[in-house]
Design a protein around this nucleic acid. Structure first.
Lengths: 223, 223
DNA sequence: ATATCTTATATTGGATACAATGTCCAAGAT
DNA sequence: ATCTTGGACATTGTATCCAATATAAGATAT
């Protein structure tokens, strides 16, 4: 195992801590698809009992991040390129709506912050940070929106495909393209042009989907 | 408490059973908003320990059906009319896409089944069944779709607003209108007209949203 | 030698026991 | 009269123990 586990022996909210750490490790790809999650092992890493671990795992399963089989244990849920593509399709429906709503009530310092994060993203020399910076930018754009449920669903969708996003940013022109598209979206926001911004955002997401399908071709259907 | 709890003492999948029963009781409105869920009490009703109950509750929280506070316990999550309206908006985005996809691969007996369910819905004399029958009809229409993630998200959305749907069906012309609209959607499906079907479905959902906002007006904003 | 049955081990699921924290009420001080 | 404080009680959170089941290795029969 290669994630950071602190000692939370006899801590009150152990299950939430375990949940957070495991979730982060999974969406960032540190725990790769199919990796088994042994309750005992994880409990030892946190110096806690298996009870909070079990609770964390059951919550992760509800989010679709792990799969469990009775008496066989939990493994990190895999996501085929086709399944990921579907998640991108959903994002492409939701996030433009969120952005459009956010733009109607966006305070000035929000755009300011978005611009800074956009620059931080394009200037960051550490590929390890790109995933987080990308997500920060999107999150800031949506922050002013009141569509809480939309945002909740979108967050879960992003969680599920975060691994693919990170992989894409590392590919050939992945980073350059993301940067370019972020800037275009940001400018549309600064112009107050909701139609353009949401359309560009949609293209940004759909583009990522096609790039994904191209670079992770689905295996030939076998009899 | 007014839901059916069977004796599952020492049963292997106790937590899943508790989860299912609680979920059903919540979405059907038998456990009303704000009702406290005491671990002890529920465990006794099922003749199990609190462990499976805790797991069930934590999963329900992940679904947004209950809210918990440390050491204070869980209560059935409330949903204001405004929040419910947002959920309907999301359904209006997703479900037409699901239906359109389902129609491209719908086997013949599926439409047959939908028609039967549609009639069963309009003929049912028991208001208690209307909610289930309504949902069955929608589910059948979507069943052929391959958009698993879309369907998963839509299911959760329906869960959250099921209480409002049931209330609407009981109101004045609620049942009549739903019946009328279901028939129109079904006919568009039978004609193989995906555009018309998805549009009618969208209207069906958006209509329910406005009816909801009309009948459950949000309280005046108070200082 | 191979296939099938048996048994040992690993691992999960649940029950019971214990620890920690919030709530509520009463008694006393100001 | 009102506010604080302390302690009993209720309830949740975690640890430990036991039961049930799957996997894999070894024994046995053909």
């Amino acid at each position: 195992m290669n994630f950071k586990a602190v000692d939370i022996s006899r801590t009150a909210s152990a299950s939430s801590i375990v949940f957070d750490v495991l979730r982060k490790a999974i969406i960032e790809g540190e725990l790769v698809e199919g990796a088994p999650l042994r309750q005992d092992e994880i409990a030892n890493m946190f110096s806690t009992s298996r009870i909070p671990v079990r609770e964390a795992i059951s919550r992760l399963e509800e989010l679709g991040l792990v799969k469990t089989q009775r008496y066989k244990g939990a493994v990190v849920a895999g996501l085929s390129a086709d399944e990921a593509a579907e998640v991108f399709d959903l994002r492409a429906l939701l996030e433009p709506e969120i952005l459009r709503d956010a733009m109607t009530r966006m305070p000035k310092d929000c755009l300011q912050k978005a611009r800074e994060q956009c620059q931080a993203f394009s200037n960051s020399p550490k590929p390890m940070e790109w995933g987080d910076l990308n997500r920060d930018f999107h999150k800031t754009l949506y922050s002013a929106s009141n569509l809480k449920y939309f945002k909740e669903v979108a967050e879960n969708a992003m969680d599920r495909v975060e691994r693919y996003i990170r992989a894409q940013l590392l590919m050939s022109d992945g980073m350059a393209r993301a940067d370019r598209e972020h800037l275009a979206i940001l400018e549309a926001c600064e112009d107050g042009d909701g139609d353009r911004a949401s359309l560009l955002l949609r293209d940004h997401i759909i583009g990522a989907k096609f790039s994904l399908l191209e670079h992770f071709p689905s295996p030939a259907v076998r009899k």
